[in-house]
Design a protein around this nucleic acid. Structure first.
Length: 678
DNA sequence: GCATTCCTGCCAACTAAG
DNA sequence: CTTAGTTGGCAGGAATGC
């Protein structure tokens, strides 16, 4: 014993490596056990990390569930704080955001950030207090709510989303995952290079003035003035973006373009939230859609997309002057916070050939969309090509030279006119990692794709307006909000042959109708739930619920006109007509009759939403029923789960016995008994 | 082979904002 | 009143299960 020495070893890099690893896990969504919702953006993270870094979260997580909503901080700011928590660094934060950052840091009890205010705000805060506070946990200014004192009380359904009070919801969505997969890398590299990314932002002047008011609420992007030096001006939320360096930095390794691939040490820093930014155009020079869109593995390996800034779009000088120009125009970037995420998709999945293949190829070219980018002619998708393993998912064939030109120059000039940038990628591999809301234009003959981040506030089809829904504004949420068009980060757009396809960011399915995509997306997010009235089943689509309930009631609405038999659904009816009458139900003449639904008079727009939109405080277990106003005009908008009953959702039927009747032919097949619970 | 479920384009009704 | 966004129903093909 005595002769043995005790040896100690300290891994000095362990903490940093550990932190880096945790950050990577967050980026990939690994082991994340909490979702923080801030202004409709969802951030996934690890409770342990948050609670260890923030006194606020420390207290909050003792009572909160897996989903927490913060109303007192903006997403942009929270993203910075989160980046700090996972990297110990704050990189290139815009000076105009600093105060807000500090304030939020104080509220969240993030000491380092809270302490940032000490040197800068001598005049504002009483030094002594700050000092003391700083040494404690949260340095809150006089009037400032102390994070320590903000005991996260979960208040049931309070309709006032008061500041500082977390809202715990049950909402779940993949949005958060997108965000996290988004590169939130903080790089150690010198700031001169810092960041450029994928898209820089320049806001078209006209846009700026447009939604100024709205923008100012969510987008504290300072107006021009002093921020000229700020880099990415616009990046409304991503301080990582620096337009100043954009020109120089536009050559990035593939890995950088794919958020998940970012190497910590690498010089690249993919911006966490590249977008809000301005519309930029990304030209994918190589249409390797096959590999890019389908094979996730190849996604990272082969591609070396270099992003080239097309100068013609830029202001003469990209560096300092550009920054100035941008910032001056950007301030009002009416970008919605929401539209921030770049999707990272480690698995680019594919703009699934199947789904695309399903789409009818419509020859006519639609008009140009609001963003002012021209659509390019592309050969209709061919089924064969799609089916072939090695083939491109989307095949671009011949083209008119004119189109090409038009595309590169025309679009470019247009974009330039609007202050947009054009970025060229070598491949289309990043298609899967585009920001939501991006438009992807297939270029004829050029085998390229243009990716355009839609101009915010644009009224283009399918693009939700940037609805500034200042949660903090005006205190209580107005019920009106519910009908406001909300920006969803649930898709990007692929324009082929003038036809717009909406691509689900999660599964890459394509849709011809945005409404279809929205409906589909609920399958991922379960933002709305449609519970069966008669059993415990819950559906993601209203129609599924309705059809399911029909089975409970046994009502047979479809009647064969030939023999008079009734059936429960179209499929059985059609099958009957085919097999028994040897006719095609889909012919010109209708061979069946669809009777109106008697047993279920469901008010329209009834679903359960756990989205906090407009609903401020929710208990973890509470559910919000959004009951649309029926024809009766009763004001039913949002109510507490405890206040609602099925009677509020279903119009009481005069004849309760109906549920027991067997409409068709004396069959007892659908004998239905109303559950006790009902 | 039949029944059921899923999926998606299309459409009408409803609703809210302007 | 008009316009535009949302919701849910329907048709009909495809996939799945028995």
């Amino acid at each position: 014993m005595e002769g043995k020495k005790l040896i100690s070893a300290t891994d000095t890099q362990y903490s940093s490596v550990l932190l880096q690893s945790l950050n990577e896990q967050r980026d990939h969504g690994l082991f994340c056990d909490v979702t923080v919702i801030v202004e409709d953006q969802k951030f996934r993270a690890h409770r342990n990390i948050l609670s260890a870094s923030s006194t606020y979260f420390h207290q909050l997580f003792s009572v909160a569930g897996q989903v927490v909503e913060l109303s007192f901080v903006r997403a942009e700011i929270f993203a910075e704080i989160l980046n700090y928590i996972y990297s110990s660094k704050i990189i290139s934060i815009r000076s105009d955001l600093l105060d807000e950052l500090i304030k939020s840091g104080q509220q969240l009890g993030v000491k380092f950030i809270a302490d940032l205010g000490i040197p800068l705000s001598d005049g504002k805060n009483t030094p002594s207090e700050v000092k003391d506070g700083a040494s404690e946990t949260s340095a809150s200014g006089p009037g400032q709510r102390d994070a320590e004192t903000q005991v996260p009380v979960i208040r049931p359904e309070s309709h006032e989303a008061t500041d500082g009070m977390p809202v715990i919801t049950q909402s779940f969505s993949l949005h958060g995952i997108e965000y996290e997969t988004t590169k939130i890398t903080v790089s150690d590299s010198d700031d001169e290079d810092d960041d450029v990314i994928f898209c820089s932002e320049i806001v078209p002047p006209k846009e700026c003035t447009k939604d100024k008011i709205a923008a100012t609420q969510n987008q504290p992007c300072p107006s021009s003035a002093g921020v000229s030096d700020q880099k990415s001006c616009g990046s409304g939320g991503s301080p990582h973006l620096t337009s100043t360096t954009a020109a120089q930095k536009l050559s990035l390794p593939t890995s950088q373009l794919s958020p998940n691939q970012t190497q910590p040490g690498a010089e690249s820093h993919v911006p966490a939230t590249p977008h809000h930014l301005t519309p930029s155009i990304i030209v994918l020079n190589k249409p390797l859609l096959n590999s890019s869109l389908s094979a996730s593995s190849s996604h990272q390996a082969n591609v070396t997309p270099t992003i080239n800034l097309l100068e013609e779009n830029q202001q003469p000088s990209n560096n300092g002057s550009l920054a100035e120009v941008e910032t001056t125009t950007v301030d009002d970037d009416d970008v919605v916070e929401d539209d921030v995420d770049i999707i990272s998709s480690s698995s680019p999945g594919s703009v699934s050939s199947s789904s695309l293949g399903q789409q009818p190829s419509v020859p006519n070219a639609a008009a140009t969309e609001g963003s002012g980018v021209q659509k390019k002619q592309v050969a209709p998708l061919s089924e064969e090509a799609l089916s072939k393993a090695g083939e491109f998912k989307i095949k671009i064939s011949d083209v008119l030279a004119g189109n090409k030109k038009e595309l590169s120059s025309g679009v470019a000039s247009k974009q330039a006119a609007e202050g947009q940038k054009i970025i060229t990628l070598d491949t289309a591999t990043e298609i899967g990692g585009l920001s939501t809301g991006c438009k992807v234009y297939a270029n004829i003959g050029e085998d390229t794709y243009d990716v355009v981040i839609p101009v915010k506030g644009g009224s283009e089809e399918g693009e939700a307006k940037a609805v500034e829904t200042p949660k903090a504004s005006g205190g209580g949420e107005s019920p009106n909000r519910k009908r406001m068009k909300v920006k969803h980060d649930d898709h990007y757009e692929l324009i082929v042959d003038g036809r717009v396809y909406y691509i689900c960011i999660v599964c890459k399915r394509s849709y011809a109708c945005l409404t279809s995509l929205r409906r589909h997306f609920n399958m991922h997010s379960w933002e709305k739930k449609y519970p069966c009235r008669y059993c415990d089943k819950v559906f993601a689509l209203a129609e599924y619920r309705t059809k399911h309930e029909i089975h409970h009631t046994g009502e047979r609405r479809y009647q064969c006109l030939t023999c008079g038999k009734s059936f429960i659904n179209y499929q059985i009816t059609a099958s009957h007509i085919r097999s028994v009458h040897s006719q095609e139900p889909s012919g010109d003449t209708k061979l069946y009759r669809l009777h109106p639904c008697k047993s279920l008079q469901i008010r329209q727009y009834t679903y359960i939403s756990d989205r906090s939109s407009g609903i401020q405080g929710m208990n973890n277990g509470s559910i919000v029923y959004r009951v649309g106003t029926g024809k009766d005009g009763t004001a039913g908008t949002t109510s507490n789960s405890s206040d609602i009953s099925w009677d509020d959702i279903f119009v009481p039927h005069a004849n309760e016995a109906m549920f027991k009747q067997n409409p068709s032919e004396g069959s007892s097949e659908f004998e239905f008994v109303i559950p006790e619970s009902y």
